[in-house]
Design a protein around this nucleic acid. Structure first.
Lengths: 360, 360
DNA sequence: CTGAAAGCGCTTACAG
DNA sequence: CTGAAAGCGCTTACAG
């Protein structure tokens, strides 16, 4: 230990303090820290000891100013209170902070003003890269993020017609698998509880539903496609709609475009005396924590949230450091069907002939 | 619009570019932006026009280096994937970003290495203030945050024996209110499902439970205090423990130290045929979103999460800018009891004499 | 009211 | 292998 150690010192030590104590120039201190192998061992030892004794840590603002980098990444999330994104953020944070990057979390929360503020911030060079989890390229009234010469990577919600890297699951294929599970159980009357029509995830999941039915030789019945918007509330409404149906015409299974809606629907039909899975099998999508707590526990598609975040962050780091993207523009991560208690073969056996007679 | 606008320019405009275009010195540009009232109107007009035409935005690193501030606040959260903190973070983010501060989210996630890295970062002057949501003052093997001459504010989880500002709900009073609600319904045999003993929140909620019973003249029965650790799993275990009890000795109501445990317990006793609230009333604590979806919906204490975050952030801003804290060191925000479907008067009427005979 | 100049703490060619 | 020096983009006394 030197005379006065850094711990209780009033002001933080700067590089000049270290240089003085070690008896070298500031350039040598800087070099020792950045590329230890270029200085001779004796110098290195002296410098490192001085660093320790002074408690020196570099001033990031000064370094960033000098090298013209910010070492921060902005990540745009639609809603930070949504647990889904919280876990994706964890994967991002792990990867980015291990590489020395800081994180600015831009919580869009449906506010165009906030979004515009963040766009301006990025255009002003306040971030070295941007991670888009919000399903669109951020905009402001007078600036376009694509002109900001800053690396972009999107994750979770695919953004069509763009050519930066994107990391998502394969929504079409995964939705297809979910519906195939219902078909395999013997269901032939399978409803779909949709998300908002304009949403890309909704469009892909609906497509997967269609494909699975087609493969099974089941005609798509438009009356079995229930409107929803990803909220618990529309799940409840869809449940009520199901209850008004003549029991003979009621589907024996339902695939919901997300878990919240599935859970709202189950709760509603339960309260009316319908049993899940005996009277109705339900599959959700996302794998939120609650899907494992609800009654019955929900069969659903579990997205690799952490990995989605980590992979996107790694892709962005590549882009920021090398200036070029990895080989694949669109990385699709596997999501898996988690079988739980909300699905079961239909009680009355296949009602297929009935459905075909009724539909289109 | 000037000849070439900033939008598609290669490099971001700097203050010298603005000065040249406006025909003034850089000092004047800086002044106009910082304190518009000190320059004469004509100058101000010219400068502002030049700012607009160049698309100028100040380089934050340079400014921070110069004024020796970082304009970032570090917020330490125990677990970013926990929806409770996600919403507190929203309140923090709103307040801080409106004041021009950036946010570094330190996701401690039970990792002492990460925590130490963040402590070093703060000691190196990389943040102007710290918001502690983690229930303890962050530590690293060789540095103490309290010596880092950086403003500290804690929120949500009270940290005893410290003298920086703290913002929490009144856990004792609120728990007392929850139990009083059960007492008012006529319950006299009221169990408590606890959190981990070492946790300060647990200690306070237990104290509130005790006070409410005492006020009602009900003796505390140690056998009705079930161990838990805030997880859904221990709620399930407590439910099983309840089921092994002789029905006559079974409590008619239960207060759980948090919602996850309450929900796990309800699910377990339901599966065994016990009805909530008819056979058992349950009150939770926290007001997580799921408490409003589960079956039955859960009567619980709703914490003002957003407000907790916003208030703590405002307190920290005061501390960072004026150097002194507000009047009150410990700010207690009101939490409210949300009545839902999991509580009801006991089926068999007050069993008070029985309880007294049995306990203490 | 405005300008010239110093300086915040670093990194990095450029010499030697 | 090491040092002297320039410069990253700002802000702010200090003069005038």
């Amino acid at each position: 230990m030197a005379k006065r150690t850094g711990v209780t010192r009033q002001k933080a030590a700067k590089i000049a303090d270290v240089a003085r104590l070690a008896g070298v120039s500031v350039a040598t201190v800087s070099r020792t820290l950045a590329r230890p192998e270029v200085v001779i061992e004796e110098t290195r030892t002296r410098v490192l000891a001085a660093v320790r004794d002074t408690g020196y840590m570099p001033n990031i603002s000064a370094r960033n100013l000098r090298v013209r980098k910010t070492m921060v990444v902005l990540v745009a999330v639609p809603d930070i209170a949504n647990p889904f994104f919280a876990e994706v953020l964890q994967g991002i944070d792990d990867t980015l902070s291990a590489a020395g990057y800081g994180l600015i979390i831009a919580n869009l929360a449906g506010s165009p003003e906030k979004e515009a503020r963040y766009v301006d911030l990025i255009c002003a060079g306040q971030a070295d890269g941007v991670l888009l989890l919000c399903g669109h390229v951020m905009r402001s009234p007078d600036r376009d993020l694509r002109d900001a010469r800053v690396p972009l990577v999107a994750a979770c919600e695919y953004i069509p017609y763009e050519n930066f890297p994107q990391v998502t699951i394969d929504n079409v294929e995964t939705a297809r698998e979910a519906v195939r599970h219902l078909v395999d159980l013997g269901h032939t009357s399978i409803a779909y509880l949709s998300g908002p029509n304009s949403n890309i995830l909704e469009q892909q999941r609906l497509e997967g539903y269609r494909q699975a039915l087609r493969e099974a030789g089941i005609a798509v019945d438009a009356s079995l496609i229930l409107p929803g918007d990803f909220t618990f509330r529309t799940g409840v409404e869809a449940g009520r709609a199901l209850l008004t149906l003549d029991p003979a015409a009621r589907p024996t299974a339902l695939f919901a475009a997300n878990d919240e809606m599935a859970i709202g629907l189950i709760k509603t039909v339960h309260a009316a005396g319908l049993h899940v899975p005996d009277d109705l099998s339900v599959v959700g999508f996302d794998g939120i924590a609650y899907a494992d707590y609800c009654e019955p526990t929900l069969t659903t598609i579990v997205q690799p949230r952490r990995d989605l975040g980590a992979t996107a962050a790694a892709e962005l780091i590549t882009l920021m450091t090398t200036g070029k993207a990895g080989l694949r523009k669109h990385i699709k991560l596997p999501a898996k069907l988690m079988l739980r208690d909300s699905t079961r073969p239909p009680r009355k056996g296949p009602g297929r002939s009935f459905r075909i007679a009724r539909s289109g």
